[in-house]
Design a protein around this nucleic acid. Structure first.
Lengths: 186, 186
DNA sequence: TCTGTTGGTCAACGCTTGTTGGCAACGGTA
DNA sequence: TACCGTTGCCAACAAGCGTTGACCAACAGA
């Protein structure tokens, strides 16, 4: 489909630098100049390849949560699997921290988070919760707990949240998430 | 102690405008010029009274969660009272949304959130959880759920989280928060 | 070998930002 | 009345921003 171009390496370097800067500093403070410097090229190249700063952000913030298929595993383990998966993703990929940073201050970032939520978390919830009609609500509840922990642990760095072990976090959060997704009543 | 000054009204106007701007736009996008315009004075006045932008932010982001005394009420209602209280605070006072916005992108803002957490939520947790030694961890867990819901509902505006009624949110979150604070084991 | 396309740099633009210092009006106090 | 600290506005500063267009070097196809 798309032919490989001589500039692919540069484009990739720009994207990687952009992801890191957006993740570390948020939308406003991550400047095109600093991203270009990280990528070792001229700022004008960023403009040529991605149009403008918003376009660069859009390209740099493509997100795949890589959610596992929950239908295949016993309902009793679902919470633990989900929480554990999210901790993994968050610790390996700083695009997620970036998404959080940008989603909070920038409307385009918020919209990006809403669409990721809708397209990737929604279907999962629909597959496992008792009444598919309120799957979105269940998904939002689960998201609130998972995002909240990510916020406390990886962005705000509240000391007790940082010091907890992975296992502790999973042990505490799993029942919560599982209840949000599968319980018949609050 | 402090004598009333002729400029008190101006100072207050600046602070109020600053709170609104920081809450609505975050630290970087809330400019001194826009704050001064809202307050109906010259930008240089902001500098004279608050030194610089960081000083203004520090003054504008004094936060009192006004947490109720949980010791006085039955343990079974604790979660509901807490969640309900936070929803109230968040809906009445946009400084809290501002704190969240700024805490995510700005290190001074994050430190402010950590200190509010330590000074105001910590003691409450210490008073009600079984082993005071792990009160900070309990408090962090409760905070993660409450902040996560605030994030989803008031900042990111995930549609299902916005559409839920106050009562629904309380009904779902209360057992979670209560478990984090008082349960013997995860 | 010539020619058109692509990858890249350089210098500048217009604008906004936080911040500064000078200067005029006001308001108590002596 | 004369004075002095306070309050406020104005104009400007240097720096940084996103963005643009001219220009050069390397390549690919004829």
């Amino acid at each position: 489909m798309t032919v490989p171009r001589r500039s692919d390496a540069t484009r990739a370097a720009i994207l990687e630098a952009a992801r890191e800067r957006f993740a570390a500093e948020g939308y406003e403070r991550a400047t095109i100049r600093s991203i270009a410097r990280d990528a070792g090229i001229d700022p004008s190249m960023v403009m040529r390849y991605y149009g403008n700063k918003e376009g660069l952000f859009a390209a740099a913030s493509e997100i795949d949560l890589r959610l596992p298929d929950l239908g295949a595993l016993p309902a009793t383990h679902m919470g633990a699997v989900l929480v554990s998966h999210f901790l993994d993703r968050w610790e390996q990929d700083d695009v997620l921290t970036g998404m959080l940073r940008v989603g909070v201050t920038n409307e385009a970032g918020a919209e990006r988070m809403r669409s990721v939520f809708r397209a990737q978390l929604g279907p999962i919830a629909a597959g496992v919760c008792p009444d598919p009609a309120d799957a979105p609500r269940r998904a939002a509840l689960a998201a609130s707990q998972i995002l909240g922990m990510a916020l406390a642990r990886y962005v705000l760095r509240l000391p007790p949240a940082v010091e907890m072990s992975r296992e502790e976090v999973v042990a505490w959060l799993a029942p919560t998430v599982q209840r949000y997704l599968t319980a018949e009543e609050p």
